[in-house]
Simulated assay, not measured.
Amino acid sequence: MVATFKLIANDKDITQTIQDNLISLEFSDKVGVQSDEMSFVVNGIFVRPAFSDTLKLSLGYIVNEELKLFECGTFSISECTIDYINNTTEVRATAVNFSSSVKIKHSKTFANTNLGAIAGVIANRNNLTAKVQNTAFNVKINHILQDNSSDIEFIYSLAYKHGFICAIKNNCLILTAKNAEMNGYKVIASKKESKNEDLPSFKLKISDCFALSITENNRIKYDACEITSHNTNSATLTRIKVGDGNNVYKIKESANKSEAELKSIATARLSELNKGGVKGSLICAGQQISAGGYLELENIGVFSITSVNHTLSSDVYSLNVEFEA
């Protein structure tokens, strides 16, 4: 089994050229507002690629002379560094094309709509396809202002606020619910409803890992979240509480939020407040593991994957995975 890759630049296969001169190749898969990124460093001084160029990366192995690869995504050239002393060329590319309209700031009001529909508007405005989980259309948005912010900042923050993961991969805007209750080291068994089955799940044994560490922090555990919003029409205060118990986290929202919208925000906030008490990282052989999915460590527990860094150097392919619960 030999580690390998495939790299397509503007529909042209440049794998062999890069492979013949390769020093290192990396692919960073992340959750949140940061874009996925790939980079490679090669021996020699090469002509700088155009910033309009796109790269399509696949990683994997040659097994019994058969090529077994998985696609990492399509990336836009963002940076090129030529080191004239060390005689090397480094190219970086991101899944989000930051020179496109996705970074242009807009001011727009959305009213009587839902999270899924807003994601569709953002995708259409930036010539992106959209893969939106059906539950996003059930998240009602009474009124929200995109206040002089870029589309990517706006949709990422709105998704996070309601407990969703948003990402742009392969020129596609992806929106899916986190919707998972991680309970320390305890494997989810009876709470199947708390696990978003649309998210990928991966299993590893301790023996699969070259390094593995988990840190548990002593931090405040909130039993409930109480959220309030002022109704300007009736001059009353709308109050919603999610969860039970005495340790209540209280937040205020902008005016005229519906009860359904407030419940969605409070549920997502309570989940986020109680995550991160357990954090870990591991190093293992290169394979298809995706940020945003679930990681089940045998005899330890189930965790949310926050980032995956793929590194290929010569014939060595490894992963650095970070996760939390």
Rank of each mutant, 00 (worst) to 15 (best):
A117N: 05
K103L: 08
N86D: 12
G120I: 00
A117M: 06
A93P: 13
N112I: 06
A93H: 09
H106G: 01
I104M: 13
A117Q: 09
C80D: 11
N87S: 14
I118F: 13
N86A: 07
V121I: 07
K105Y: 10
F110H: 12
F98Y: 14
D83G: 11
F110S: 00
S78K: 12
A111S: 15
K103R: 15
N114S: 05
N126D: 00
K103A: 09
T88C: 14
A123P: 00
N97P: 00
N124C: 05
A117W: 06
S101E: 06
I77P: 01
T94C: 01
T109G: 06
C80H: 12
I85W: 12
N124R: 13
I104D: 11
S100R: 09
R125H: 03
I85Q: 15
V121M: 04
E79T: 03
I85H: 14
R125T: 04
I85A: 15
E79M: 06
Y84W: 04
K108I: 10
T89I: 07
A123S: 02
T81C: 08
T113K: 07
R125F: 03
V121G: 02
I85K: 15
N97I: 02
N87T: 09
I85S: 14
K105G: 01
V102P: 03
T94Q: 05
S78N: 15
L115M: 02
T109F: 13
V91I: 15
I122D: 01
V121Q: 10
N86W: 07
F98V: 06
L115K: 02
I104G: 04
K105S: 12
N97F: 04
F110L: 04
R92P: 01
F98I: 06
N126M: 03
A117P: 07
T94K: 13
I104Q: 15
A111M: 11
A95I: 08
N124E: 15
I104L: 08
V102L: 02
T109H: 06
S100T: 01
N114A: 02
G120Y: 03
T89A: 08
A93R: 07
G116E: 11
K103Q: 15
G120C: 03
